[in-house]
């Protein structure tokens, strides 16, 4: 994991140079996509910790993003809370919801656990929707852009370094965690719970920590998303968002932080790529209306293709190109 072959060092340096150069070269629209990738990366790392490392399935990811976004939105709306209150509050809300989302995991696993987290997704979305209608924000809540030392964060160029910084920090926190006691316990319960228990690992506590940490990071990503967009609406957190995040970790490569990043980039860019491709087709007028349908269809096909042909995901492909051992 920590081997510093020249190939890896060069790749890493090129990647860092590209990340630094991007805001100076890219247009506003491109930078907006980059920012979306960074936001998705934070959320995907959170889900990767839970599913790819601790082995717990959750379909509540959009609900947790919504919980974070709404915590920030409601605090901004009701008490004019600035972002430095909104973001920690969102993380705390996420952590608390993580306990609730995680409780079913103590009894259920696999598809049953997935369905129970799905129920909680609908609960969060219902509460958010109720708030919107009761308070008369039926189209959503507006949030003022964060202000730091008189500087207003409102355009993609200003946001890019912030989101890049947060994404890198989240990556480092996740990496530290995976290399210590908690990360090993997650791997152990992911492999076999009775054996982990017989070696002194409290399986229930280990699972709950996975849900709490993952949910706190996810809710924080939701709050960042709300500040970035300057707007929160429950419409933005459909079940399709959950499916997108699950797709990110599958396409990127289960059990790999790099996989979470690659998957986030792939899934975020895909609809834009499809749009661009369809614009090149001669009969683009007729296709314009069906771009959403095409997006869904392409999405499904790619996910199936990865599950069948490359279960190791993009990371698995990279490893093969790099001549490294396979993922399994």
């Amino acid at each position: 994991m920590s081997d510093l072959s020249p190939m890896r060092v060069v790749t890493a340096l090129i990647a860092i140079a590209a990340l630094i150069a991007l805001p100076f070269l890219a247009s506003g629209a491109t930078l907006d996509i980059a920012n979306q990738i960074l936001l998705a990366t934070i959320g995907a790392i959170a889900l990767m910790l839970l599913t790819g490392f601790a082995g717990q399935i959750s379909l509540g990811h959009a609900g947790l993003l919504a919980a974070g976004a709404f915590t920030a939105g409601i605090l901004a709306q009701e008490i004019a809370a600035p972002f430095w209150i909104g973001i920690p509050a969102a993380a705390l809300t996420g952590a608390l919801l993580g306990v609730i989302f995680g409780l079913p995991s103590l009894r259920l696993r696999g598809i049953y656990l997935a369905v129970s987290t799905l129920a909680l997704h609908f609960l969060v979305v219902y509460v958010g929707g109720e708030y919107e209608t009761r308070r008369g924000f039926s189209t959503g809540i507006l949030i003022d852009p964060p202000v730091v030392f008189g500087f207003e964060f409102w355009d993609p160029v200003a946001w890019y370094p912030v989101l890049l910084f947060v994404a890198v920090i989240v990556w480092l926190l996740a990496r530290n965690l995976l290399r210590s006691r908690t990360g090993r316990a997650w791997a152990a319960i992911h492999d076999t719970e009775p054996v982990a228990a017989a070696l002194g690992i409290n399986v229930a506590r280990t699972k709950l920590w996975a849900f709490v940490i993952s949910s706190a990071i996810t809710a924080m990503a939701g709050a960042l998303f709300a500040y970035y967009r300057g707007f929160v609406s429950i419409e933005a957190f459909s079940l399709f968002v959950t499916i997108q995040y699950v797709a990110m970790i599958i396409i990127g490569g289960m059990g790999s932080l790099l996989g979470a990043v690659l998957g986030a980039a792939f899934v975020t860019v895909l609809p834009h790529a499809i749009e661009a491709a369809s614009a090149l087709l001669p009969s683009s007028g007729g296709l314009a209306g069906s771009i959403f349908a095409m997006n869904y269809a392409a999405f499904g096909l790619i996910m199936i293709a990865f599950l069948v042909f490359e279960p190791g995901g993009l990371v698995g492909i990279l490893r093969r190109i790099g001549g490294k051992r396979g993922t399994r």
Binding site: N176, L177, R184, A187, H190, D191, A196, G200, I201, G255
Partner: peptide, 28 residues
């Protein structure tokens, strides 16, 4: 534990003896 290397398999069994908590581990 198939997901861990040899040393980490042994470290997993030190779980009880290691007193760190997830927050201090994350922050290193």
């Amino acid at each position: 534990f198939a997901r861990l290397n040899v040393a980490d398999n042994l470290m997993a069994a030190r779980h009880l003896a290691i007193g760190s908590n997830p927050l201090s581990e994350m922050l290193g």
